[in-house]
Design a protein around this nucleic acid. Sequence first.
RNA 1: GCGCCUGUAGCUCAGCUGGAUAGAGCAACGGACUUCUAAUCCGUAGGUCACAGGUUCGAAUCCUGUCAGGCGUACCA
Length: 555
Amino acid sequence: MKEQIIRVVSGALDRAQASAELRPAAVRPRIVVEEPRADAHGDFSTNLAMVLASKQKMAPRKIAEILIAHMHDTDGLFADVAIAGPGFINFFVRPAAWHTVLKRIHEHGPRYGASEMGRGRKIQVEFVSSNPTGPLHVGHGRGAAVGDSVARILSCCGYMVQREYYINDSGRQIETLGRSVYLRLQEHLGQRVEFPSTCYQGDYIRELAREMAADDGRHLMELPPEEAVARCARYACEKILAGIRRDLASFGVAFDRWFSEQSLYDSGRVAQTIEAFRDRGLVYENDGALWFKSTAFGDEKDRVVVRKNGQTTYFASDIAYHQEKFERGFDRVIDVWGADHHGYIARMTAAIEAGGIARDRFSVILVQLVNLLRAGQPVAMSTRAGEFDRLSDVIGEVGRDAARFIFLSRHHDSTLDFDLELAKQKTNDNPVYYVQYVHARIASILRKARRQGIDRTDWDEQAVACLTAPEETTLIKAMARYPETVQTSAELLEPHRISYFLMDLAAIFHAYYNRHRVLVADPQLSRGRLCLVLAVQQVIRNGLALLGVTAPEKM
RNA sequence: GCGCCUGUAGCUCAGCUGGAUAGAGCAACGGACUUCUAAUCCGUAGGUCACAGGUUCGAAUCCUGUCAGGCGUACCA
């Protein structure tokens, strides 16, 4: 609907300029159409006359008059177009014109809200990428929900999306993992060992050690320690990764590709990247280490890629990794990171630009941390004791839908309080159920309709013409906003906009439901209302799908 | 010190990249189940948009500064 109005306004501007009543502008202003808060200001309004005023050297209200005179309402949308305030043009849409929105929803079904904004461009979303040194915790859960939802939204907007998980299966932390398991294994086999605080403290390390002991633990002890540690590392890494995959699967998150950091070393890719940088003078030696000139690309200081001891840094493999991503043909690459990594953005962007890729093709979604609470009290989480607020526990306790919805109920820039008790509550406090309830209620209406022998739920133009109640128009107006909401959340990479949209639509529906009955004596009106609530159900389902939340038939 | 993020109702948060009189939910108070699911709805009350300047027809939104909180500032990952 908004697009149609933009077209009307845009056409009026063209004609006004063609007729020389308005002088042609060098730069055409972006036409902004908004929905005013107050009903008295109509269904839509544009500020175009005021934007043009200074350039045209004309009073805004005068410009508004000219624009209105040149408007062609070919679709018969408007009951009235009025000038108000300092020069707003307000549009009052005929109630019947709103019915075309309903028709569109019926026609497009699951594709309502989809667009070709992405024009098939390839885009990659890399998220979670948690180190395989321990199980996923709630913070990863938020990253998983955000990454997956962003991927769903982009895909809905016509991008070819790939979901990727980067496995840090190389370097010191993996060695530490191996040593941790090795020491616990020795301990398990009755040896007295000193377990350093630098090792991973969690109970899952003991479990892994027990498993290995049951397998071929004693045989391992006969190997040279270095080899035994390496074996422990490989075993633990695989096991933990399997657990991560399991947790993600139960969270409804599926990756298209799991990319191993080690593979970048095995293929010589990291070394090649460094050499390429060396050839182009992008690195230099200092204090025995090799530095990347990231300051030349906007970073605040240069960064080490090869340490004095000859080992490459994590950053080095990350540069190679991101170059490799773009070589795979992605137009855009999006990384979802925990907010504690924000200091890393400047150098990563610098490295990408140094590799000859425009910096705006890379973006990072920083996800702020999650405070896990229980009835308002913080849930104790001690990394030292190795106790995690595990994602699997949280999903087990509150369920996948509630967890996902809550993770997506805040802007990713703000910290999130996740209250386990609240998440289980089935009240208004907990918006998941509030939204899902709409879907279930409508399903219930349909069941009743079928019992009454009404089995036609297809589009019925005449029946829909009966929908004249103001609550009905409000409902349709809300649904008309959906496609735009999806596009905005795709542009800004902000899935929470979908959550808020759904809560808003749900509130409007519940109010309607309490005020009007769908199945009434008048069969024509019943059919019209059935068309209406079916559309609501469709939009709720589409929106929930973008969040990865189910739409239940019964609750 | 420097950098990034945040500051909106008692609490938790939206606010459509500058629009008209500031928006929800929770908590408080008062109402609505013989109906298609009350996991719902209706109403009342609640505000110096941290503070001070600036930009313009117009600012919660943009710019500068101040204050407060979070995070970061490795030859760790």
